[in-house]
Nucleic acid binder design. Structure first.
Lengths: 230, 230, 230, 230
DNA sequence: AATGAATGAGCCTTCATTCAT
DNA sequence: GATGAATGAAGGCTCATTCAT
């Protein structure tokens, strides 16, 4: 009895070794949707299990509890998003940093505005930022840190090597902020501009604008930095 | 001491006719803190009442229930923030729009990064954006819409009259997004840059950066628009 | 403070010395309606006070509590019923017992089927019989006992002096039962015979039937008893 | 022991498909007792569960709530009463209607005056009549209507075919009323005639009296109807 | 004479979890 | 591998009542 439980936990902790249970998969899917809609506290294990056509005890059996399910859900959908909209090739060498910035912004927006399931991840993360659970720090380290590190590197290249670390961070946040607003403030945007929601879903158009809006500032800063240092 | 302060603030909210109950005031204060920390679903009426040194029944008596308390809390602290960092004079005539933009950004950041109680409002709003409750739409209309309208007007003046509405919206969101990132992604920032939190609290510095980063893009767009139209 | 309270209680216990407070009167009226509709446990002090346009504390002030209000309500509306449909003259001497029986039945039915407020009393009593409160025994002694005593006396006269006490009781219950069915089973009657409710409210017609149905049995018993004793 | 008994009874209720849970059975038993004693509003889920040695949550799990438990209790004990004192054979053909009337009355009284658990149903119904809950109409249709229909049919045969429907109803109520008085007015009877309670429990004696008292009236009406119609 | 504020006990229900099967 | 039954804690809320005014 105990052994079975431990075996499960072990497999879960192994990370990649997720057993291919159908019930388990249905739970991950349903939980993603419900958590994204109602938050961790607002979602009940019962509702999730009903949505997954599973028994009430299934969550505890497969994930050891609500918290366990939640962190697995976050990790799972993060992986799905990463796979559907990969970012690795963006850091590829030799391409102009401004081109890579454009790709980065477009990928970030795609991940956030995807209407399919991976959007759940974006909404889950938005909730985590607003009121973090125990799962938060881990996901930041595993998911956000490399992403932001990409952006930092690109910015560093644009601003030039001698740019101040603080300035690089601030510019990084200026870019990230412009992207994330479409995730975090989605409801506000919908309420403010009746005709806007249609537009707010076109990640390509938004990316274009952000680049167009940001490049002049970036170039100015690049010039200035160089001037300052001289 | 605290009570006097709260009473003062109440009295300034003319029109809503909030009774001068001490318990009621303590509840608003405590609920602000607890809701901001744990979210609507995560906060329990019992905990709030304990923090306010009030009876469990007080919430129902004064606010008709948990939801009533919550919406009053949001409205109340929104009013407090608006009063502590007013925005009305920013729309004042005759000042250069770029100057007014700088003031606007600084005020928004002050409201969001204030370490005192009004910050609660910012965190409450961050939670609302992530998973909105019934109170959300009302607050957006009463609180956010006028704020964003200010910004829109300023942007419109900078870009020139013939600027596209869609473009104005996108620029507006680019500014707002840069500001809000310091609210929404505060946890990420803390986890990413150990030395940054210190800096992230200096609203003035942040405002300076945002203006410095955005003005070149704005001017470029202003030029371009004029050119396009010609 | 305490004195005032005691004075109140004293006056209430005096029975006839009800002070002519308007609030108090409104409470008696509203409480009669609400108690009759929802029963003692189902009615809340708050609802009664709202219906009476009085303060929540009024019930405790005027009646010392919910139970006090309830017993006063029962006593009050019993008195109203007794006054509106008096029974005393029925026991008047010299009239034929069968005539007095007819009047008795008609009066009982009038009290029970009256559409005005005194009906409240009837419904309250029906509830008391189903699940009695502390107020029950008192009201039975003050209100029901004399009523039934009237009927017993009439039956005794009809059956003849030598009739068995047990038989007199059973006949008494047979008459009472026929009358009370229209009170207790009102809902059943309504559900059973769609066309009946109209008829069920005509106390005169019902009384006629009950007399017509019962007299043959009564006369038979009277004859039998006399025969038995001989 | 008790459980076995309850299980048996359940199994006989074919069609409703009640699961064979021990806790569920204990709840039905305890709830019958407590509801009968204190009414729907007066009985608390906690007390019922304590009496059933079950967890507070059991009521919600098995019955979906207090109201669900209540209606199941009513339906259950109605079925038990129907089974313990069946009425079907009374409508059997070829027997003299007056004999069947005697059996009907005796059965009704047995159901109402049974000292065992099924009496709960009688008291529950008395409470329902006094202040009906949502469960009432259903029980009337499933339980009372067929019963009264039996009686109506018997009365119709006694009075003869040409009897008026209204008259049949009134006679039906006269019989029912005499029976029900021993249920509804039990407390009054106890308070009025100290020596009576002993007698009030002998359903056979009461039935005898009711028949003796009613037959003359019935025959008279039968004769009269026939005369009238001629 | 009457009231608005406040109270603590108790209400029914839902929660995540555990158990035996 | 999976489930229906059962649990204790906690949830928000309503209750009759009391208090100071």
């Amino acid at each position: 009895m105990l052994n079975i439980c431990l075996k499960r936990l072990f497999e879960m902790n192994a990370g990649t070794k997720e057993p291919d249970c159908e019930t388990r998969a249905r739970l991950l899917d349903a939980a993603g949707r419900v958590f994204a809609e109602r938050g961790f506290n607002g979602a009940s294990v019962r509702d999730i299990c009903k949505a997954a056509r599973a028994n009430v005890a299934a969550v505890n059996y497969h994930f050891g509890g609500k918290a366990g399910l939640y962190s697995q859900v976050v990790a799972h959908w993060a992986a799905v998003a990463r796979q559907k909209y990969p970012m690795e090739n963006i850091a590829a060498p030799r391409r102009a940093p401004e081109e890579r910035l454009r790709d980065f912004v477009r990928t970030i927006l795609n991940r956030m505005l995807d209407e399919e399931r991976p959007l759940w991840h974006a909404r889950l993360m938005a909730q985590e930022m607003a009121s973090p659970t125990a799962a938060f720090d881990g996901v930041v380290k595993a998911f956000y840190r490399p992403t932001i590190e990409h952006l930092r590197q690109i910015i560093r290249e644009i601003l030039g090597r001698k740019a101040n670390d603080e300035k690089i961070d601030r510019v990084t946040f200026s870019i990230m902020g412009q992207c994330f607003y479409y995730l975090h403030a989605r409801r506000i945007i919908e309420l403010m501009s009746p005709e806007f929601p249609r537009i707010a879903k076109d990640a390509g158009k938004i990316a274009e604008h952000i680049i167009e809006f940001s490049l002049p500032g970036l170039r100015q800063l690049a010039r200035k930095k160089r001037t300052t240092r001289k």
